[in-house]
Nucleic acid binder design. Structure first.
Lengths: 337, 337
DNA sequence: CAAGAAATGGCAAACGGTTGCCGCATGTTG
DNA sequence: CAACATGCGGCAACCGTTTGCCATTTCTTG
């Protein structure tokens, strides 16, 4: 009977040490801080490492050095297409820097979020928190212990990358006004979402500046399914234009409006937020705030890695511009007969 | 001047040992194999662990035990929405089992794929390979060293979960035949994709059975952008129906056909594969093969974890059914005047 | 009641690197 | 040429846990 294959011994620095005649510590140095040893030594050791197909053991390295070369990216819901771009951006940038990418879904729960984070604390060098559900205090406390970048969330002392919704919302409002709309409804997303509040505030402000009526409906869960309820509620108000918390909700609304035989933009105009995958091929195609989300992911990684190299550095905060992308879902005010 | 905060000491089993008066080894046992110690001892130690907010260090654990409680999921392109469902499925199931989810993008490159895998080998307990670009030989060799589950790929000796495209393609073919189509074109995806070959073979076979003309165009990169070229090529053949390698390509084709003023399904019918996010709200909505991809992700995780518990177990292979979801993009053969 | 089995806890050696410190050999400077 | 700095390699401790082995105590069992 065969033995059940005892975990195969992998090549270690000791094997390289034995092969080259140097001490293990010298091998370690030659590999991880080449400047510390003689050039010839370095070459010999590196050659042997290649020869033996040596792969450093990250766990062992992390144990003493404390660095794991792993960053976790937390999203509130992996299935939300908004995060696709973000994940793509972080993935790209992390891979380029040789870091591993640990994906965590916090399921919209603050408890789960902080639980996962404490559990993983020792396995990661830093984290990128997209749409964190944590309170400001909790977030600040966490940031003191773990290098962090928050996406779409600003808290004192916590690095962040935020997308400039206020400016985008203002553009959208002006666009609607220019089309003749005088009453705009905001279809609210989850109440514990920071971005949701920011968008509503921006709309109120823009409405105030232009002296028009703005209202808020909801909250609605940020999914396509909630679109039906949102659409029905919007129709019920008699308003001629709606700005949805995000594209998912907006697309759900479009579907519902089509079902009910309501003409978009003939009878009502709809604006989304984020410009996710699908916004350009839904029907009608969606006017939306285009967020440079992939870039946000890349920037977040850069800021995080910069912080890791220089922990004393300043807590930077970056604001990325949005712009309105006008498509088919917005049009002139219907002429009342 | 403040000291730059030397890495904060975290609570270890030694702290618990000191606090309770037991030896570290006993603490370790009480925590990780509670049956091995006296009930009272276990309770005291676990209470102390809770008290001190002890969090086990996974790196240290991995070093001796060899198990990291981490599974990596490799996809060929994170931005492909096909993977969203898969990632969701694996994420759910892994979290439930207490495993970490390491996401890797192989960028459609076999080299990168195997490079990442060898680099990570010691940091993971197993891997799920979606759309692997590795050769059969390389894959089998890898599987001998690392517990593996391949998605949409069958190789002798490698566990797998595949989606039953042949049956789905057959359904799609019969659907098109029932609508009167006599000539079907396959819009091919990347040549190094196993699923692409499987789909084409299935279509050839189905075509043969029903005595109709099938042709193949391409290969086209599996993205929406390639849809234009694919649509133009399809129109050029004069065929009345096309089955696209995947929904991304199909949606791209719909966009192009609309641009060119071609009526779908009035003049031409389009079928996609996978039923990704967007297939139900593009215009026209897409008839497609609905793949239980999220379930595939969950099953893959289950199979992998089962294998980890019992490495000697058989290399199982699972086939998941597909079904045709008929929407607006397919219709009766246009009546030639 | 003796002998063997089972339960329980401790010791110490790993696991695979990193790093502070030391010593030797060489190079630099006045 | 003495005094000192610098370059380079080795020793050994350490990171936090797991685990094989052993000693003790407590049960079983004939």
């Amino acid at each position: 009977m065969e033995t059940p294959a005892p975990r195969p011994r992998r090549v270690t620095i000791n094997d390289i040490a034995a092969a080259t005649g140097y001490a293990a510590s010298t091998v370690s140095r030659a590999l991880s801080r080449p400047g510390r040893v003689n050039a010839e030594t370095r070459d010999r050791i590196q050659a042997a490492a290649r020869e033996l197909a040596y792969v450093p053991n990250t766990q062992a390295r992390a144990l003493t050095s404390g660095r794991t070369e792993t960053i976790s990216v937390l999203v509130s819901d992996v299935t939300n297409p908004f995060y696709f771009g973000l994940i793509r951006g972080t993935q790209q940038q992390l891979k380029a820097a040789g870091y591993a990418h640990l994906l965590i879904d916090s399921e919209n729960s603050a408890e789960l979020e902080s639980h996962m984070l404490t559990k993983m604390r020792q396995s990661i060098d830093g984290a990128i928190l997209a749409a964190s559900r944590l309170s400001d205090r909790a977030l600040a406390a966490l940031a003191a212990d773990l290098p962090l970048v928050a996406i779409n969330r600003t808290v004192r002392g916590v690095q962040s990358v935020v997308i400039d919704s206020p400016s985008g919302i203002a553009q959208a409002t002006e666009h609607l006004i220019s089309l003749g709309h005088r009453e705009i409804v905001y279809l609210s997303g989850p109440e514990n979402s920071w971005a949701n509040e920011a968008r509503w505030r921006a709309l109120s402000a823009a409405g105030g500046r232009h002296g028009l009526a703005v209202r808020r409906l909801g909250p609605f869960p940020a999914g396509r399914k909630s679109g039906s309820a949102a659409a029905d509620a919007l129709l019920n108000t008699g308003a001629t234009a709606g700005i949805a918390f995000n594209d998912l909700l907006a697309i759900g609304m479009l579907t519902r409006l089509r079902e009910r035989g309501v003409n978009v933009p003939g009878q009502i105009s709809i604006v989304g937020c984020d410009d996710i995958f699908g916004a350009d091929f839904c029907h009608p195609t969606l006017t939306t705030l285009t967020a440079p989300i992939e870039q946000a992911g890349r920037m977040a990684v850069s800021m995080l890695l910069a912080r890791l190299e220089n922990p004393a550095g300043p807590a930077r905060s970056l604001v990325l511009p949005t712009h309105l992308t006008v498509r088919e879902s917005t049009g002139p005010l219907p002429t009342t007969p």
